[in-house]
Amino acid sequence: MSERISKFEKFKMQNPVIQFFKFFFLNFRILNVVAKGHGGTRDKAYKDKR
């Protein structure tokens, strides 16, 4: 077992106060990925965006 994640980093990962704010930020980032729509890939509009 090697300490790849430092103790300070682990403290931040498990600190409820820091994580409380991160919870909202994480939800916002996830929603930005999953709730912003989806679509096809074969239409001209998609291909033109490249």
């Binding site: 994640i5 931040k12 990962m13 498990q14 600190n15 409820p16 994580q19 409380f20 991160k22 919870f23 930020f25 994480l26 939800n27 980032r29 996830i30 930005n32 990925v33």
Partner: peptide, 17 residues
């Protein structure tokens, strides 16, 4: 911009939510 990773307690709360 939409492909990211995050580790920690907040992720557990998100999964529980």
């Amino acid at each position: 911009r939409k492909t990211f990773g995050e580790i920690g307690l907040a992720g557990h709360w998100v999964k529980y939510a």
